[in-house]
Amino acid sequence: MRDLLLGVCIAELGVIAVLIIRLARGPTVSDRIIALNTMSTQGAIAVLFFAAYAGRSIYCDVALWLSSFSYLGAFVWARYLERGLL
């Protein structure tokens, strides 16, 4: 069981590695926002599974912050693209 949890964690980091390609290449800013957003979602799931692997439920809070704040970042970037931040 523990091997399964750790394997999922490693596989999620592999998915993040695929997404870095789009973060590097993406011709427009919107592409990069999408890649970054998806990266933090996958990171949140990786953290959840690592918490279950390590058996410490306090790590789960980091996943909560990661998933919620990545979307906040997406909204900030969208606003910046449309009319500037200030």
């Binding site: 973060l23 800013v29 970054l36 990266m39 990171g43 953290v47 980091v62 990661l66 990545s70």
Partner: peptide, 18 residues
């Protein structure tokens, strides 16, 4: 793009800290 890659550094760094 550079600023966004900086944000990616922060995200991955938090995973590393966990």
């Amino acid at each position: 793009g550079s600023v966004m890659a900086l944000s990616g550094v922060g995200t991955l760094m938090s995973v590393l800290f966990v």
